[in-house]
């Protein structure tokens, strides 16, 4: 049986019909054409599908679309909406934290969820926040560096 759900993705309201078994990841990608969350495993292991749902980083492959009724969802597309790069995006570029880029949208979402609640994370806290985001290219170090420097920039901008 189809359900009609209304959800807020990246500041826009969408109303879509979904089957109960449809995953949030598939609905975002196939029905809303928001393709930054990637499909890497569909079982919660790789983190490529990470989005922020109601303030928390989640694997959108493990979330049923029907559950996102009234949810507020953020993907990396939202960060650049006003044409200005988010400090995390800029830091990822500057630190060499992007190679093939397939992990990048999910990685940035995990990082953003962290910085939104903990603006001055330790290196360990950063690692913990992205441990569920696999990257096969970068060796992670540039990513950790990028998040650290984004945090510093955001602190400065906020201050």
């Amino acid at each position: 049986m189809k359900h009609t759900i209304t959800l807020n993705v990246n500041g826009q309201k969408y109303t879509v019909d979904v089957e109960p078994q449809e995953k949030l990841l598939d609905v975002l990608r196939d029905k809303l054409d928001i393709t930054s969350p990637k499909k890497g495993c569909e079982m919660g292991e790789c983190g490529a599908c990470t989005v922020i749902m109601n303030g928390k980083a989640v694997n959108s492959c493990l979330v049923l679309a029907v559950e996102s009724q009234d949810a507020v969802i953020t993907t990396v597309e939202a960060l650049h909406a006003d044409g200005k790069l988010h400090p995390l995006q800029q830091a990822f570029i500057d630190a060499g934290a992007v190679q093939c880029g397939f992990c990048t949208p999910g990685m940035i979402m995990s990082a953003k969820a962290l910085l939104d609640t903990n603006p001055t994370p330790t290196e360990m806290e950063i690692k913990e926040a992205i441990a569920g985001n696999f990257c096969r290219c970068t060796g992670y170090k540039p990513i950790v560096d990028a998040i650290q420097s984004a945090a510093a920039v955001m602190k400065k901008e906020g201050a």
Binding site: T35, S36, L85, Q89, F92, I93, G96, V98, G101
Partner: peptide, 13 residues
């Protein structure tokens, strides 16, 4: 800077 970095951090790639 990598030529593809902007596309990749914005989800445009």
């Amino acid at each position: 800077t990598r030529t593809d970095a902007l596309e990749k951090v914005t989800g445009a790639a």
